[in-house]
Design a protein around this nucleic acid. Structure first.
Length: 267
DNA sequence: GGGCCCATAACTCCTAGGGT
DNA sequence: ACCCTAGGAGTTATGGGCCC
């Protein structure tokens, strides 16, 4: 095996050569693209295209979806550009400001233990060890997996509490800065598990009841959302009343808890 | 006025971990 | 980036209402 230094030099030389060649013939030296393991072509159930929603929910973009540039979006870009002339002073996010990391899952815990008992000495060695560790994991039966699953479950059970604790001890400005940093890196900050949820509105209460009357499950339920909406629209005010009443009650309780009075029509 | 949130399910994608 | 996999979280339809 090559000594570490020699190996690094060799790798760097290969990389440098590759980069130089790629500069001359980019079409030949196309860098490996990260292709999703499953696409809408291979998917058994392709994602449904948004019909009436003006925008999708925030967060991860659909794979392959290129955001349309509407006049409004262009306006926003111009606005953002003009704003960007004045450099915004962002709060610096320190390492200790970051929320607790998501706990490792069972196979990763197993991998950690495996590496501890089988130390590596080189890059090639590390790669082999990885393959080896996951090979060992794959060859184990469910009973053998159990200790790591239990550990993972324990860590996972603790995670929401740790996250909620982080939200409690972290000031709003830092949370916002962390959120921004996450967003900039294409990640999403997990929401506070203890956050107070707004009560579900009348239609959702109706929908919850409606789907109980359906004898379908899974994704099939989705096809009934339109039907449920039509049914909701066809309901008389009297029929809708119980749903609105329960919503108003829940909303009043929600506002009372927050110390804010609900807005009325006269507001 | 736009964006988000609420409920619901399966499906899909991403993240977590280690060393180099 | 490479190697792997379990599980978290976003996506998707829907309408009403709140908040910025």
């Amino acid at each position: 095996m090559l000594p570490q230094l020699a190996q690094r030099v060799a790798l760097r030389t290969i990389h440098a050569t590759f980069t130089r060649c790629a500069a001359f013939a980019p079409s030949i030296f196309v860098t490996r693209l990260r292709v999703p393991t499953r696409t809408f072509l291979s998917s058994s159930l392709p994602r449904l295209a948004p019909a009436s929603r003006k925008s999708t929910k925030k967060g991860r973009k659909a794979v392959g979806a290129k955001p349309k540039k509407t006049a409004k979006a262009t306006k926003k870009v111009v606005k953002a550009k003009s704003r960007s002339k004045k450099p915004q002073k962002l709060r610096r996010v320190l390492k200790e400001d970051l929320p607790p990391k998501h706990p490792p899952v069972a196979c990763i815990l197993h991998f950690q233990d495996y590496v501890k008992s089988h130390p590596v000495s080189s890059l090639e060695d590390a790669r082999l060890r990885l393959k080896e560790a996951y090979g060992v994991w794959a060859s184990m039966d469910a009973a053998a997996h159990q200790p790591w699953i239990d550990r993972s479950k324990a860590l996972l059970a603790e995670y929401p509490r740790r996250l909620a604790e982080w939200y409690r001890k972290t000031d709003e400005e830092t949370v916002k800065a962390v959120e921004k940093r996450f967003k900039a890196r294409g990640r999403i900050l997990t929401k506070d598990p203890d956050r107070e949820r707004r009560p579900a509105p009348a239609f959702l209460r109706f929908w919850s009841d409606y789907r109980k009357t359906l004898s379908v499950s899974g994704r099939e339920v989705l096809t009934y959302t339109t039907e449920a909406a039509a049914k909701w629209r066809s309901l008389s005010d009297e029929e809708k009343a119980p749903y609105f009443d329960s919503y108003r009650q829940a909303l009043a309780a929600y506002h009372a808890k927050r110390g804010k009075a609900p807005k009325t029509a006269s507001d």
